[in-house]
Amino acid sequence: MIGLIDSTMLTLFIGIGGILVLATVIAAILGFAKRGQENSTLKNLNQRIAAWWAMALGLAITLLIGETAVIILFLGLSFLALREFLTIAPTHRSDHKTLVWLVYIIPVINYWFLWEHWYGAFAVLIPVYAFLFLPIRNALAGDTDNFLQRAAMIQWALMVCVYAISYIPAIMQLPVMMHNGREAAEGSALGGGGAEGALLMLFLVVVVQLSDVFQYVWGKTLGKHPVAPSVSPNKTWEGLIGGVLTATAIGAGLWWITPFVWWQAALLAFVSCLMGFFGGLVMSSIKRDRGVKDFGATIAGHGGIMDRLDSLSFSAPVFFHLVRFFFTT
């Protein structure tokens, strides 16, 4: 075992690498067949494949180094997600000093508690302390115009971009709670979750990302009835059902990388994929409200970080707490 990577994970990564190579080759063949044409579907496909390569490589390299590296990776992703969120969020000039806390201080403390394996502090820092402190700081700035909207917007940015995303690396600690109990896990040694914890995190990431892919594929091929037409015409019942069921089946098939039996893995995958779908729906509503297509619309040719992490940010906290509730004592 090197870092957090054992032979099971190596097998998983070889599988992921194989799928990505296949996807890249297919996209290249499609690009060659349609050369010279402007094709938004193909452009989107290439963006997604590039994002998965980055995700897979980022996770593989950081897992090789250890838990600290993974946590720093997600701190960086939270920062980039906040930047995209604040670009489209109509905050006021008077919110600036509150935003400095939001961006530079609270996320660092949040990920520090995570790094300390200090679950009790990690779980309440943002929903209790930060959510009360930020409106206080904003009220002290004295601008009452649209105060409630601004306070809500700032808390929501923190909730989605920092708190929810930080639950992805938090999953790595779950095996410590499963084997030694919740109390013993508080302040336990870094990397204590070992390869088992890292595999649990990868289980969620792989299943939810594949759910996105299969929702897209089923939606493109069979999709006719939109779930919420005014939010996104591309999210159809056919895509939702086909995608979630396919990914749930894959999740059940991946039981061997988790501490669960096959039906437990299937149920957790099912709930995670459903949450992932709703995450995409909520983020689409925000984008539609703000009149942008992608969170990274200001960077040519790229979707944003939040466009790729929306589903994970909604599924990770629920996955974490379901496992913690049912499988740890």
Binding site: R83, T87, T298
Partner: peptide, 8 residues
């Protein structure tokens, strides 16, 4: 302001 807040 002295500290920049990240935005695109």
């Amino acid at each position: 302001e002295a500290i920049p807040v990240p935005r695109l």
